[in-house]
Every structure is written in C-alpha cells, then in structure tokens.
Amino acid sequence: MTARIRKGALGALGLMLTAVLLGRAVVPTAAIYQFVSDYALRWVSSLVEFPALIAGFVYARRAAERFGDGNPAARAWRGFAAWLALIALGQVVFSTYGLILRRAAPLPSLGDAFYLAGYVVMIGSLIAIQRAHAQSGFTVGTTSKKGVVAFALGVSLAIAALVTPIASMPGSVLVRALNAVYPLLDGIAMIALFVLARTVRVLRGGRAWRVWATLLLSITLSCVGDIVFAQFYFHAKLSRLEALVDLAFMASYLLAARAAYLQCSLMQGVTPTRARNEGG
C-alpha cells in the first residue's frame, strides 16, 4: 500500500468517524444509532485515543532527548510527554470502568488523579515553553498586558459561571471541589494558550509554526472537551453531547501526537522514520 493510499484511507476513516460522532450529538435519533450504540462508539473512541496518546508520548520524549539537557525547550517537551502519559493512564482507568466493568467510574477515582496531574503538568509545560522562547532572545511576538488581563478577566468570569452551580450541588465537599478544579484548570490553561498564541502568530510561514499551531489547537480542543463535559455533567439532558466530547478529546490527542512528531522532524531536518532508516 503506497503512502498516498494509506493517507487517503486514514483520512476517509477519520472523516467517517467524525461524521458518526457529530451525528450522535446533532441527530441522535438517526437510524444508524439503532445499530451503533454509545457503548460501541466509546470503544472506537478509546481505540483511537489510546494509541494517539502513546504515540504522542513517544515523540514528545524523543523531542526532549534531542533538545538535550542544556536546552530550556527540553523541559517543556518532557512535560508534554508526561502530560500525554498521565492522560493515557487516566484513560486506562476510565476505560476499565466504562468498557470492561460496564459501569460509571466512581468520583473521585484514580483516573481523576491521573487527569488532574496531567493537567497541572501540561500547564507547567506551556509556561516552560514560553519561558524558553523568551530566553531564546528571539522576537516571539508581543501581547499587550491589557490584552492578557482582559482575556484573563473574561475567562475568569466564564469559569466562575461554570463553577458557581457546583457549590449548590449535592455531594461531598471532595466531589464538589473535584468538579470545580477541572474548569479552573481549563481557565488557567486557556490563559497560557492565549499567551502562546502570540508566538504562533509570529512563526507563521515557518516549519516551527506547524508544531506550535498544532499543539495550540490540540490543547484548545482538550479544554473545550472538558468544558462541554462539565456542562452535560450538570445537565443530564445534554448527555448526547458526550459524542462531541469524545470527538474533541480524540482530535486533541491525535493533534498532540502530530505536533510532537513535527517537532522531531524539525530537529532532524528529515522525518524521524526516514532518519531511523538512514541510521540517524
């Protein structure tokens, strides 16, 4: 099978999967969903997400190794690798409950611990890469302080609107605190992404742009998935949006893997696969 055919087949498969998951959210009564259950869709999502997370982890780690210890970007890539590994571990826990034991995961579960740790590490990595870019001495773009403050204020208000109903929810303090922490971390991540976006803007046209634009989109989709999840958690009638959440996370992890792969390619001058074949 040539690379072109393989690429086309994967693209077609991706489009089909996207259509099925989008359709589940938009037209849940469509005939196809009498045959394709939510359980089956969850299996498919997991089977895409898990390898994507592992591939992302492998490439991000490889990128960190290639940067070397003295390079400030290495720490950020080690962090991105840890983020993807922790999310993969969280996936294993949640998939075990949902797909193997066929019951909802308890709240909190070990999966939450992995997810939250992953989020914190990811935010730390975003801060680390911005510091590395700033230390480079290169012109990484400017964002007015007013712009950042205005964006942070907007995000804070939106997050407050999401978190406030949690306070009045039934459940233990731990459960409510856990449900509040996810949107709070999303908010912090989005502010870090806003700052990273300035670098992405000035990198336009260069090969490094593809790396950072892809990672920016990946993490944005992860935050969006999380926020939509928080909404249907509180409003049971929105449960059909679960397919959208799966779609957002699936795209996020695939893009993260792609970004890490692109970073490796950029450092090699050729694709990592080709480099390996050449003994590189």
């Binding site: 290169f138 990484v140 000035v202 990198l203 046209g205 260069g206 490094a208």
Partner: peptide, 15 residues
C-alpha cells in the same frame, strides 16, 4: 525563515 517564518526571522536577526 524556513524554520521560523519570515516575520520572526527578520525581527530576531535585526533585534
């Protein structure tokens, strides 16, 4: 510019 794009390359070299 191949790696960093023309905007960043020019601004960084000049800076």
């Amino acid at each position: 510019a191949t790696d960093l794009g023309r905007t960043m390359a020019r601004a960084s070299v000049e800076g």
